[in-house]
Amino acid sequence: MQEVRRVISVIAMNESSVLARVSGLFAGRGYNIESLTVAPIPKSDLSRFTIVTKGNAKVIEQITKQLNKLISTLKVIEHEEMVEKEMVLIKFSANESLADIKALCSAYNGGIVNAGENSVIAMIADESKRIEYFLSAAQKYNPLEIVRGGVVAIER
């Protein structure tokens, strides 16, 4: 069976060990996590997890079923029609061409968010695939550090 990439959101009780329950499930059953983000849902006692995973159809089905089975889980969304974004922070030396970096970032919904004596920091937010393009283009300016935020997604 063919492996597919899937973005799954989990709405679960915002309790002390819920992150361990979710991540432990993936570790214990040998499922893949490409990225995982989690934050509380405003004005509720719930948290939202966004998980990017890979697997064949049978594995993906098991992942959603096992996530659903957790006592703390309210809802599992296997995204199909979604808007998906990932944020990246990237640090360059101040000696690189600021104007070029700025132009590159703006092509990817981003810009410079901090400029210091020795370095500048840019931020972009875009689809994961476009993030890959951005990062390879950014290589030209010798990035000092790259921090990816993991995917968040919302159903259209």
Partner: peptide, 16 residues
């Protein structure tokens, strides 16, 4: 205890 038993319980609680 909740860490160790997480994969072998249906659910577990640490009373806070």
């Amino acid at each position: 205890a909740v860490g160790i038993s997480r994969p072998c319980t249906k659910h577990n609680y640490l009373v806070a």
